[in-house]
Each structure stands twice: as structure tokens, then as C-alpha cells.
């Protein structure tokens, strides 16, 4: 139970740390910054776990995990899942979610409605769909999975490996065989 208490506490600290970092010192490399904060919080969590009593001064004996080392492993696992599956995903959805942005556009629309033409012209508070794909393209160019050659977009070696992997996954799951 110590693992759950400390991992939960550190997740709150991580969320607050990310919030402060985003608000006080905006940066173009938000994911890198979030991951650095996660790393620092992970170290603090480990130190906190080692320095605190097994029962945290409040837990009944029946709620202590044995062997003790396993409790530390669980604390780090729970905390990592809270970051990679929680805080980082919240960020990805909030910053890059395509469908989510359409819902927010509908929420912010004066008449509370959207249609295809409106999304095409003014997706994401007036920026339009071309801007949306520009953002993806810029990300792919920055990650060096594609490069521009004349009027074409070409996979790099890294991009080819990624494409092969995703194609293999989609083929295995038969995602493209459906009507």
C-alpha cells in the first residue's frame, strides 16, 4: 500500500510540476520537458520510498507489501504508468487530438454546431485543416521519418522501418481487410 500512496502523491507532484513548467516557462519541446520532470519525480519517489518507514506511520500491518523490495518496484511501475498512460496521454490528446479539437470547436462555435465546411475552413479556432496537417508534417520532418524531395514527401530509412512495423501490425490485425 505504501507503493500506491507514494506513487499517487508523486503523480500529483508531477502534474503540478508540469502545470507550473507549462505556465511559467513555455517551450516548444514540451514532451522533452515533461519527461525530464517525470525523471526527477522518479528519483524523488525512490528516495522518499527508501527514507520513509514501511507503514508510513499510518498503514496497518496487513496492508504492507512483502517482500519490501517488491513494494518499491510497484511504486515505480504505478508511477510510470501514471505518466506514460496518464499525464503524457492527457497532453497528447489536449495538444494534438484531432477529434477532440473538433469537439472543442463545436463547443466554442456561436451556434453550438459544426459541419464539414466549417471544419475544413476553421478547424482549431480558425486555422483550418491545412494547418492541422502542416503540424503533423512538421513533426514528421523534425523526427526525420520523412524528408522533402522536390514536390514529394519521401520516407527516410528510419521512416521506412517505422512504416514497415505499422504495416505489419495492421496486416496482422487485419485492419485493412474490412469493408
Amino acid at each position: 500500500m505504501k507503493a500506491i500512496c507514494l506513487a499517487s502523491l508523486m503523480t500529483v507532484v508531477l502534474f503540478l510540476g508540469v502545470t507550473l513548467a507549462f505556465r511559467l516557462a513555455p517551450s516548444a519541446h514540451r514532451v522533452r520537458r515533461m519527461t525530464a520532470i517525470y525523471g526527477i519525480c522518479g528519483v524523488i519517489l525512490t528516495v522518499l520510498w527508501l527514507a520513509s518507514p514501511d507503514d508510513l506511520g499510518i498503514l496497518p500491518r496487513s496492508w504492507l507489501v512483502a517482500p519490501a523490495w517488491f513494494d518499491l518496484v510497484l511504486a515505480l511501475f504505478f508511477f510510470s504508468a501514471a505518466y506514460f498512460g496518464g499525464v503524457l496521454q492527457l497532453y497528447n490528446l489536449a495538444d494534438r487530438g484531432f477529434s477532440l479539437r473538433m469537439l472543442i470547436d463545436a463547443l466554442e462555435s456561436p451556434d453550438g454546431a459544426i459541419d464539414v465546411d466549417r471544419v475544413l475552413a476553421s478547424y482549431s479556432a480558425g486555422q483550418g485543416m491545412r494547418w492541422m496537417y502542416d503540424k503533423r508534417m512538421h513533426g514528421m520532418l523534425e523526427q526525420e521519418v520523412v524528408h522533402r524531395a522536390g514536390g514529394s514527401i519521401v520516407l527516410t530509412a528510419k521512416g521506412e522501418r517505422a512504416a514497415d512495423l505499422f504495416i505489419a501490425i495492421r496486416n496482422f490485425l487485419r485492419l485493412d481487410d474490412r469493408p
Binding site: V18, T19, D95, R96, Y123, A125, Q127, K135
Partner: peptide, 8 residues
């Protein structure tokens, strides 16, 4: 809260 701008 996170000052992400319009995003999407």
C-alpha cells in the same frame, strides 16, 4: 491551464 493554445 497548460496554456497549450488552440492545438489540434
Amino acid at each position: 491551464l497548460w496554456k497549450l493554445g488552440a492545438g489540434g
